[in-house]
Amino acid sequence: MPESTPREDTPTSTVGLLADPGVPRQIAESIGSRLSIDLQDEVGGRWSVEVSEETLPIAPDGAIPLAERTPELLSRHRWNRVVYLTDLTQYRDDTPIRYLLAEDESSVVVFVPAIGLTRPSASVRRLVRDILVAYHRDSQLPDHRMPGPLGRIRMLAGMVRSNRPAAMGRALRGCTAVGMASGAFGIFFGSVWPIADSMSYLRLAAVSVSVVSALSAWLIVRNGLWTRRRNLAPQSGTLDNASTVVTVWTAVALMHVVLFIGLAALAGVVVEPSYLAGQLGHATSVRDYLVLGWFSASMGTMAGALGSNFDDETVVREATYSRRWHQRRLMFDDYGS
């Protein structure tokens, strides 16, 4: 068992934790101090982990040439090992992989999306620890592959997390503004109220799913987010388009929720309960205002397609993907036209 407290004269081994901006940088900052303790407990000696945000260039084949840059990085930063966290992905024989270790084992690239959605920081820390421990003990490395449907599902979830659907939602300002204005017609015009009142929760949910799906499809087509199979960048895999669909659908669904909250609140302020009861022919409750806001939000979401014409295509593309995925798609002309 390694000593928990190293001697004062024990040399320090330094691991450089490079990270892409966004989710990888957040993970790196959250695991740095704990990772050094893990290595000290498992391997022994003194360990230091230095976090640095640095974006390495993408090679012509779509991969990250970390091994080629490792000598320069180790010399410049005076590190002993370098670990690079990226939100790009890579495959071997059409199977997603979690990491790629250099032949001399002095550097390793960890593909954060392959870690999945659940507790990514803890999972990345455990993976990096196991790789470094295996190297120092000359033992079995953790499996780098993610085979089967479950591996692809985890990869898809990680890719969507890196894409940050909420950021895309914030980029759809024109879409949201037109949606709110259009949905307000459902609040101010009483002819809409009986229609909303007559709808069951199941029908309202079906309408919501339909309009969110329709607007999502329109945004993907209008902004050239769909990638044709022949244009896919090397090693990007077929999950590229799947992550685009899930990211855009989630962003539009969040916009739909924002419209629902805003329009339901507007209905509560504008429409008197007694007047609403007279129009509907029965006593009213909070439920009626929520249903009215829900149906009006669906109307507004559908009208958001018009508002999308006011949103800049470049801004939407940059917001849909992480910075590194956007760079790779530009590099391989993966934005359809």
Score class of each variant (00 low, 15 high):
residue 203 R to V: 08
residue 168 M to G: 03
residue 72 E to K: 11
residue 92 R to S: 08
residue 253 A to T: 07
residue 73 L to M: 12
residue 222 R to E: 02
residue 113 P to V: 02
residue 203 R to Q: 12
residue 15 V to G: 07
residue 111 F to K: 01
residue 86 T to H: 07
residue 115 I to D: 04
residue 237 G to H: 05
residue 282 H to L: 06
residue 92 R to K: 11
residue 66 L to G: 11
residue 137 R to S: 15
residue 336 G to Y: 01
residue 38 D to N: 15
residue 62 G to I: 01
residue 253 A to R: 06
residue 331 M to D: 10
residue 201 Y to C: 00
residue 43 V to C: 14
residue 319 A to L: 03
residue 112 V to C: 08
residue 219 L to N: 04
residue 320 T to R: 04
residue 136 H to I: 00
residue 8 E to Y: 12
residue 32 G to A: 15
residue 78 R to L: 08
residue 204 L to F: 09
residue 118 T to A: 15
residue 300 G to E: 12
residue 239 L to A: 08
residue 100 L to K: 14
residue 161 R to I: 05
residue 224 G to Q: 04
residue 59 A to D: 15
residue 293 G to R: 06
residue 90 Q to E: 05
residue 226 W to V: 01
residue 299 M to A: 11
residue 322 S to A: 13
residue 24 P to T: 07
residue 335 Y to P: 02
residue 50 E to N: 14
residue 226 W to K: 14
residue 90 Q to I: 00
residue 184 A to N: 07
residue 178 V to Y: 02
residue 121 S to M: 05
residue 331 M to E: 12
residue 293 G to L: 06
residue 95 T to C: 02
residue 285 S to P: 07
residue 292 L to G: 09
residue 217 A to S: 14
residue 19 A to I: 02
residue 20 D to C: 05
residue 327 Q to P: 00
residue 29 E to L: 14
residue 201 Y to P: 00
residue 38 D to R: 15
residue 178 V to W: 02
residue 208 S to Y: 12
residue 227 T to I: 07
residue 225 L to K: 04
residue 317 R to T: 05
residue 323 R to N: 01
residue 169 G to S: 09
residue 141 L to E: 13
residue 146 M to Y: 06
residue 277 A to I: 02
residue 274 S to P: 00
residue 91 Y to S: 06
residue 176 T to E: 13
residue 112 V to K: 09
residue 224 G to C: 06
residue 156 L to K: 06
residue 167 A to P: 00
residue 303 A to P: 08
residue 335 Y to N: 07
residue 160 V to Y: 05
residue 75 S to G: 10
residue 107 S to N: 04
residue 89 T to V: 11
residue 166 A to M: 07
residue 282 H to W: 08
residue 197 D to Q: 11
residue 317 R to F: 12
residue 197 D to P: 07
residue 93 D to M: 09
residue 23 V to H: 15
residue 313 E to V: 12
residue 140 Q to C: 00
residue 82 V to T: 15
residue 127 L to W: 04
residue 306 L to M: 13
residue 161 R to S: 13
residue 39 L to G: 13
residue 49 V to M: 06
residue 172 L to V: 01
residue 146 M to G: 03
residue 203 R to E: 10
residue 244 T to R: 06
residue 163 N to I: 00
residue 57 P to I: 03
residue 185 F to H: 08
residue 230 R to P: 02
residue 243 S to M: 10
